[in-house]
Simulated assay, not measured.
Amino acid sequence: MTPEFTGSPEAFEAFYRRHVGEVSRFVARRVDDPYTAADLTADVFLAVIDSAHTYRPERGSEIAWIFGVAHHVVAAERRRARRESAAGRRIAGRRLLEPADIARIEERIDAESAARRVYQALDGVPEGTRRLIELVAVDGLSTAEAAAALGISPIAARVRLHRARKKVSFIFAAGGAHGYA
């Protein structure tokens, strides 16, 4: 059985007027900000509408059910506020970026555009070959050094690079991002 307000807007208005005082007191006992209290009171009634099908008169009074809904709304707000507070604490004390900082970041982004093109070109290359190309073309290792880093022989590395040239030849056409030819 659902509460009587589910039939019409007028019935909901009567239901709201009958319970808004109790709900706002319930919320005000748990929240000290008047704007939050007003928002949560409205949220409670929205949640009541959404969960009207869950009301069972044999389990308790209408106001007890509403308070149960209100408890969940307030608890959800507290969880949200804790997450927001934790996020604020994580960034507290960090300085905001100055215009010079932004300029340096923009310069760094521009300077790394060739490397970004390499990464974009490598989307279709098999994982092992992609890691090898990244080490050589982006990170600047020699073929032998990259082979050692990946645990493969230098010959296998050279063969993979040779095959990769055919797939992504423009990466190496002008000497690669770090002078690989």
Rank of each mutant, 00 (worst) to 15 (best):
H53W: 10
P57R: 00
D43Q: 14
G88A: 15
R79S: 05
R17D: 02
H71S: 13
E98W: 12
G7P: 03
A156N: 05
T54K: 13
D139V: 10
M1V: 15
Y35M: 12
P99L: 11
E127D: 08
A174D: 14
R30M: 03
L40N: 06
G93H: 11
A114Y: 01
R56M: 01
I133N: 09
A81D: 04
A146M: 06
R108C: 04
A38W: 01
S61E: 02
P99F: 10
R78T: 06
F45M: 07
A146Y: 11
G179I: 09
A164E: 09
R59T: 00
S51K: 13
G68N: 07
R108K: 12
H53D: 15
A144Y: 01
R90V: 12
G128S: 11
Y16W: 13
A111P: 02
D32I: 08
E77Y: 12
R80V: 07
P34F: 08
R104G: 05
R94A: 12
A14H: 07
E107V: 06
V159R: 13
H162Q: 13
L97T: 09
E134L: 15
Y180M: 10
T41Q: 06
A37I: 06
S51Y: 04
A11K: 07
I102Q: 10
S24K: 13
D39Y: 07
V69C: 03
G68D: 00
A156V: 08
R18T: 04
H19Q: 02
R165Q: 07
E84P: 00
F26T: 01
E145G: 15
V44S: 03
V73N: 05
I152Q: 09
V44N: 03
R116V: 13
P99I: 11
R94C: 08
E98K: 13
R80K: 12
S169Y: 09
D110F: 07
A181Q: 10
A87T: 09
A37C: 11
A115C: 05
P126F: 12
